[in-house]
């Protein structure tokens, strides 16, 4: 009897907290996204009206509004492209790095792994700020380029989409390396030797042995980079210019500048459906599957 009580306490304390402070807020976003907007405070009508009998007062207008305006769709597409490019570069840098760390001897391996992940612990905002210093017109990169004679006058490196990609790749790289390393570390390095003994050359060994075995790591790392980058607000705000608008920025402005709460909620809820839901379903299925196989 006592065990039961104790188990309930353990299960339901966090359950209660998360339903109250996580699920209900998400439900509220949904509720406001289907509310009729109006001038006032709060700037939307209630979805249940009681004045002349009971009436449900909802609309899909906010979704129609954001999905029919290129301003919103274009920004979302910009964010998806940005996330795709950044994920690609993280993979391009992260893969060889994790591979060589995983194939180092065990003492060096742990030191290298800590060295790679430690910058991730230092402040995110300040790491982005560091790139602002590096990419200034009279910043260190321009000084190097000028001295090498590559350019004759300082380049405008800051406040464009390339600076944004640079900042994102830099700050998100450890999120790619960790899961990649996790999987590469697990597999037996003798497989590489074996494939060489069987006459496969380097390229073939890479594509036939190493790459297939690291697919789960690549998927995990890519998701960890891709999803938050789509919603990224700070990096475009600090390093980006007006050449491109992103999802995070228009969501922020829709709420704080335009004061269109239903519109901002519709944007946020669309983001949840398009980005997060597929992954959550995947996770639940995966954890069920792995639990079944364990028993």
């Amino acid at each position: 009897m006592k065990n039961k009580l104790f188990e309930k306490y353990f299960v339901f304390s966090p359950y209660f907290w998360l339903v109250l402070f996580f699920f209900i807020p998400l439900a509220i976003i949904f509720k406001i996204s289907i509310s009729v907007s109006e001038w006032g405070m709060p700037p939307y009508q209630d979805i249940f009206l009681f004045d002349n009998g009971f009436k449900i007062n909802t609309t899909l207008e906010n979704y129609v509004y954001i999905f029919s305006d290129y301003y919103y769709i274009g920004s979302f597409v910009n964010s998806l492209i940005l996330a795709l490019i950044s994920t690609f570069f993280c993979l391009l840098i992260g893969f060889p790095l994790s591979f060589y760390i995983a194939t180092s001897n065990i003492r060096l391996r742990n030191i290298l792994l800590v060295l790679v992940v430690i910058p991730f612990w230092s402040s995110f905002l300040l790491r982005v700020y560091a790139w602002k210093i590096i990419l200034q017109n009279n910043g260190i990169l321009n000084v190097i380029l000028l001295n090498l004679g590559i350019t004759s006058e300082p380049l405008q490196l800051l406040y464009n989409q390339y600076a944004v990609i640079m900042g994102i790749v830099y700050t998100y790289l450890p999120l790619m390396i960790l899961p990649l390393y996790g999987y590469l570390n697990k597999f037996d390095l003798n497989l590489i030797e074996a494939s060489k003994d069987l006459g496969l050359n380097r390229t073939k060994t890479f594509f036939k042995v190493i790459l297939p075995l690291s697919v789960p790591g690549i998927v995990a790392g890519s998701l960890l980079v891709f999803i938050p980058v789509v919603g990224e607000f700070i990096i475009p705000e600090m390093l980006g210019g007006s050449d491109r608008l992103y999802y995070g920025k228009i969501l922020w402005e829709e709420f704080f500048v335009n004061r269109n709460w239903p519109g901002a909620s519709a944007l946020a809820f669309s983001g949840i459906i398009i980005l997060v839901l597929p992954i959550v379903i995947f996770q639940i299925l995966y954890s069920r599957w792995s639990q079944k196989n364990e028993i």
């Binding site: 998360l18 509220i28 998701l223 938050p228 919603g231 909620s265 983001g271 959550v280």
Partner: peptide, 25 residues
């Protein structure tokens, strides 16, 4: 499944959406 959903979604939810939902809440 709902329990797993609640305890793992904050890991992947963009901060901006989480912030907005908390404020509106």
């Amino acid at each position: 499944s709902f329990y797993i959903f609640l305890s793992s979604t904050p890991l992947v939810l963009p901060e901006l959406i989480l912030g907005l939902s908390m404020l509106l809440f």
